[in-house]
């Protein structure tokens, strides 16, 4: 039986085929999806901030792009994944209220996307697809059978990555 695993905000989960991992209502947050297509092992992190430098409360690795990626890679390894056959897809990082001035963190969505790309590049993980930026919320379903990521938004309907 395939199982649907839900990931909340500042949360991450790893699993294997034929399960699905879902996360809902990404705004400025970013969903980082990692998949080893050979071993059919994958993970999804719903991060809030670029790095631990952005918060005084740092205990949760799933909260930050720079800690979520190594954490997920470690957990995937335990399920038999290899880094060399693992790729990434990223979704989210929107600015929901266009041009909000004096936002303390600037365009945090954009910064989350950039930090995600930086850490993935540091870990030598290739980004094969992305649906980032813009001004609308997105929900994500990640199919661990084939690595397909389905992104749903009210503005653009369904986008398959």
């Amino acid at each position: 039986m395939d199982e649907q695993i839900k990931v909340g905000i500042a949360d991450l989960k790893v699993s294997t085929a034929p399960n699905k991992i879902i996360t809902n209502a990404l705004g400025s947050c970013v969903a980082i999806i990692l998949y080893d297509s050979v071993h059919k092992v994958g993970g999804l992190a719903h991060i809030m901030l670029p790095s631990t430098a952005f918060s005084k409360i740092r205990s949760n690795p799933a909260k930050f792009a720079d800690t979520a990626v190594p954490e997920m890679l470690g957990m995937m390894k335990q399920l038999g994944a290899l880094k060399t056959t693992t790729w990434a897809k990223i979704v989210g990082g929107a600015q929901m209220f266009a041009n909000v001035l004096a936002e303390p963190l600037g365009n945090i969505g954009q910064r989350n996307v950039q930090a995600t790309k930086d850490i993935l590049s540091k870990e030598n993980i290739r980004i094969v697809a992305e649906d980032t930026g813009g001004d609308c919320g997105k929900s994500v379903e990640f199919n661990l059978d084939n690595g397909e990521v389905t992104v749903k938004s009210i503005k653009y309907g369904v986008n398959r990555l």
Partner: peptide, 27 residues
Amino acid sequence: PSIPYYAMDMLGALVDFIIINLSQNAE
């Protein structure tokens, strides 16, 4: 108060940057 900003979307997506701002100093 700042000027008002308008959006129509999922509640979770609308509030996440507020949560992000608060998360720098609080749980």
